[in-house]
């Protein structure tokens, strides 16, 4: 798309949206949000960038093939599920650890890892489709 306004705004919009998507992902456990919604926001962000600057730019930016990202997400979710086996509790039981970083308590959990996996699967799978379609449009 050759609108100068769109092209100028797109990078800011994309970075803001990506940041927001991570924010949404992380706050999900206690406030509206989560891996699924966060993933959708991230896809929208990258789709905008792709429309403005071309699919190749996005592909370079995300380094890996979208489907690899999605597969890695599924892998993370599985790991999160099986982590409970190591602790001797049933599959998918949430495990929680609280770490203190710079004086503030941060709760880490297998559930968060799982949600991160969901986020990556959504980003990867949908981005694969969107990018392929945007690519085709240019041809």
């Amino acid at each position: 798309m050759n609108s100068p306004i769109f092209r100028t705004v797109a990078p800011f919009l994309t970075s803001l949206m990506l940041l927001f998507s991570l924010f949404v992902l992380l706050r999900g456990h206690n406030a509206p949000g989560g891996g699924f919604i966060g993933g959708l926001v991230a896809v929208a962000a990258l789709a905008i960038h792709g429309a403005a600057w071309g699919v190749e730019t996005v592909r370079r930016a995300i380094v890996f093939h979208p489907l690899s990202i999605a597969a890695f997400g599924l892998f993370l979710s599985c790991i999160a599920g099986f982590a409970s086996a190591a602790a001797g509790v049933p599959f998918m039981t949430g495990l929680w650890v609280t770490v203190h970083v710079l004086g503030s308590a941060v709760a880490l959990s297998s559930v968060m890892l799982f949600d991160l996996g969901v986020y990556l699967v959504v980003v990867g799978a949908l981005l694969a489709i969107v990018l392929a379609l945007e690519e085709e449009e240019g041809v």
Binding site: H29, N30, A31, G33, G34, G35, M92, D115, V118
Partner: peptide
């Protein structure tokens, strides 16, 4: 605290 998200991921 977000019941919806807890249902989904846990």
């Amino acid at each position: 605290a977000n019941v919806v998200n807890v249902i989904i991921v846990d």
